[in-house]
Structures are given as C-alpha cells and as structure tokens.
C-alpha cells in the first residue's frame, strides 16, 4: 500500500493568466489528475505550496472560493525566485501544487454576522476568497463591508470586479470602500468624486475613521502588509471590537506547510504557534497571547 506523501506536489495546468498590475498576475489552475480532483477541497484563507520544478517552492494563498472541482485561482506577485519563475509561465504550462494547508477563515462561525473585510495591497487576495464565499452563500451572511487600501489605481488588484462592487455593491448588500495613497492618481480621484463616502485618499485606516462601524454582530477580517495590522486593530478596538471578533491572516516563510520545517514558528514558550498549521488565520486574541505573531 502506498501511503500518501504530503510533500509530493500535484500537477496542475494553467488554464488562464490575467495580468493585473505590473507585478501581479492572476493564475487560473486546474488539477490534471482526475483522481485527485474529487478529493481536492479548499476553504477561504487556506494556502498552497506552489512548485516550479528546478526553481523551488513558495507558499501562496488561494484567492477564490471553490466552485469548480479541481480548479482554483492564485494571485501572485513576482517578488522572489519562485514567483518570478511562475510569472514567466503561460496558458497551457504546468505548475505543481500541494495543499491546501492551514486553518482558513471560520466561515461557519461567521454565518449570520456582518463581515468587515479590511485589506491592504496584496492582502486583498486571501480576503477575496472570503468575499466570494460570502457572496456564494449570500443569505448566510449579513452586510459585507470591504475596505481596501491601494497605493494607486494601477496597483489595484481585481480592478474590474471591485469597481463593479464599488458602484453596484448595494444590490448585493455589499459596501465596497477604497482608500488610495497617491495624490496625483486621477482615476482614483474620479472614483472619489463619484462617491466621496466610498473612496478616499489616505491609508485604509482612513476608511475606518470615516465610516460608522459598530462591532454589533460583526466579525472583522484583516489582511495586509505586517505594518498595517496594529493600526487597523487599534481603530477597531477603539470602536469596541473584542479581540475574538477580529480575525487576521499571517505571512511567514512556510517551507513545508505541514508543521515540520520550523520556519513559521512564532511566539514564546507559553504559546508557540505554527503559522502554517495553527494559522495562517488567527484572532487578535491569539496575537495578544503569542509574542511576535503580529
């Protein structure tokens, strides 16, 4: 009997590539082995180890909610050796993946609650899977508020999709808010002229300051660059969010994804956490107990 080796990558075909920004592309993948497809299930917030044979492996979070069996989307920024190699791949090329790993977001727990999704930059990728899931099972969730901070219009990910939500989200009971940093950005300025209450210049925290958000029956979900968390958390706790109402997803150099290689260990000895298997989704309460997590 052959035991499944958790480190063995599975072959996937790139069925589509979308250029999103100068450094980010969206890859549509489909597993090639029909036997695996049936067993492959993922939840919002989980991640994969993606391999380019001969180059290496990198942890990448899945950015959509599962609809088709064996298919998934990855939003990849070219920033290291492996992601640069992935960016050179085209439709029809092969990638190797293993996973999904990690706990993912507690979608079940968050049912019948309002969702407040706060993302900065590439942090929108894992949160898009939460958003898609909530839209897929729309009646299970209350009001969805998305706060997305970008540097400028050209760096905005999933642009068409989000601008549609920005304009027409109310139909779906979704409030999509955008913050942009670049003063000279005319396109974002136009959006701000269109809806000054939904698009503002500044950091994502500006959106929280401007909005009237209450912690009642709400879960906040955060993802962004590490520096963002403490500012966002401060704004939220000031507005009465308790530490277990705030979820966040974390980044580390997860080499194995299965709690062995040790790279994602964090915390002091009264609370050691593996970001790959105890996370990558944690509550702010976990972060308070676990030194160095946030």
């Amino acid at each position: 009997m052959t035991v499944k080796n958790p480190l063995t990558p599975m072959e996937a075909e790139i069925i589509r590539v979308e250029e999103m920004t100068s450094i980010e592309k969206l890859f549509y993948l489909k597993l090639t082995d029909p036997q695996i497809i049936g067993e492959f299930h993922y939840n919002p917030g989980q991640f994969l180890e993606v391999s380019v044979p001969g180059v290496g492996e990198a942890p990448i979070s899945i950015c959509d909610a599962q609809r088709e069996p064996g298919q998934l989307q990855l939003c990849i920024r070219k920033v290291g050796r492996v992601t640069n190699a992935i960016h050179r791949l085209k439709e029809g090329d092969r990638l190797w993946i293993r996973g999904p790993y990690g706990n993912g977001f507690p979608m079940k727990l968050m049912e019948n609650h309002n969702l407040l999704l706060i993302a900065g930059g590439l942090g929108i990728a894992p949160l898009r899977s939460v958003l898609q899931h909530a839209l897929l099972y729309r009646t299970n969730y209350g009001l969805i508020t998305v706060m997305y901070g970008v540097r400028c219009y050209s760096m905005m990910l999933f642009r068409e999709e989000f601008i549609r939500l920005f304009r027409e989200g109310d139909k779906l009971n979704v409030k999509f808010l955008l913050a942009y940093e670049d003063e000279s950005d005319t396109k974002c300025y136009q959006l701000a002229c269109e809806r000054s209450d939904r698009c503002m210049r500044g950091l994502v925290t500006r959106l929280i300051e401007a909005a009237t958000i209450t912690p009642d029956n709400t879960y906040a979900v955060i993802c962004g660059p590490p520096v963002m968390y403490k500012f966002v958390v401060r704004e939220l706790t000031q507005r009465g969010f308790t530490p277990t109402q705030i979820y966040m997803t974390m980044e580390r150099r997860m080499k194995c994804g299965v709690g062995k290689c040790g790279h994602c260990i964090t915390g002091s000895s009264n609370s050691i956490k593996y970001v790959c298997k105890d996370g990558p989704v944690f509550t702010y309460w976990d972060a308070l107990k676990t030194k160095g997590l946030m």
């Binding site: 044979p53 001969g54 180059v55 290496g56 492996e57 080499k255 194995c256 062995k260 290689c261 040790g262 790279h263």
Partner: peptide, 16 residues
C-alpha cells in the same frame, strides 16, 4: 529539526 528545501538542476537544465 528545522529544514530547508532547494531544487538543483542538472547540466541539461531539464532534470534535477
């Protein structure tokens, strides 16, 4: 027990 993984290609640049 921390480990790191790395890929090495042979001179044919196809296998490794």
């Amino acid at each position: 027990r921390c480990y790191d993984t790395a890929d090495f290609l042979n001179l044919d640049l196809k296998t490794g």
